[in-house]
Amino acid sequence: MAGHDQTPLLEVSGVSKRFGSVQALYDVDLELYPGEVLGLVGDNGAGKSTLIKAISGNYKVDTGTFKFQGQPVQINDPKDSSDLGIEVVYQDLALCDNLNVTQNMFLGREEKNGVGLLDEATMQRRAAETLKRLSVTTLGSVNLNIAQLSGGQRQSVAVAKAVMWNSKAVILDEPTAALGVAQTRQVLELVRRLSAEGLGVLVISHNLHDLFEIADRFMVLRLGQKVADLVKTETTQQQVVEAITAGQLKYVPGQVTDDRDGEREDNGNN
């Protein structure tokens, strides 16, 4: 699916991140191509969340560089990454229960009318258009409060919120973890549609079965290191599981930090 002769949308090189005595990421590389779904897998504590928080600017990395569409970029805070067109849908979704679908999708980026008041009608139309474009049809109205929605509908709203701002890359952390079978299906289909629209999609999931349905490629983290990069058509679920549990580590944990100089000030971004 993803032509690897293309320029990657996002290219992360040599990212390391240390929390006190825990080396959460060692020298990790990642490429995300436009139009592909990349599955990021690994056991608990492998560093998946840390990696996406580095990409989204929530954590400053100790070392490492970022390129976006081939250009070197700095990602120092969440605004930097959203300005580039990288949006993250966190596991806890971050929606306001008391606001409606439209109000959530526009939160922080509301449209004004001529006299400076909120232009609810325009926002409703645009929210409805985005949902329609993504074929999210189970939602009756963009006026429903989030509290009235099911888990799958909430996930869909969170995804739609992420992609409505001309985003080019979307990162989803465990998008189906809390969902039932039918709702999981809705969300998986939505993920496929995003990549069909040319977005690069990075999905974290523990459910390899689901991931095998949607991902084009798998990147496996183990103990903070990248241990495998597997193209779906050339691999099996068994091989991915093996990489997760016993992938070959480049660095011996606990011995590597000294020569890499894990001081936080040594920040490749600055």
Binding site: L99, R109, L118
Partner: peptide, 22 residues
């Protein structure tokens, strides 16, 4: 009908979501 008012409701509904929304 103002941004400020909307943010009051947002903060009351989910402060963390509001923070992430800038």
């Amino acid at each position: 009908r103002t941004h400020f008012g909307r943010y009051i409701y947002a903060v009351g509904g989910n402060a963390e979501a509001s923070r992430r929304a800038g």
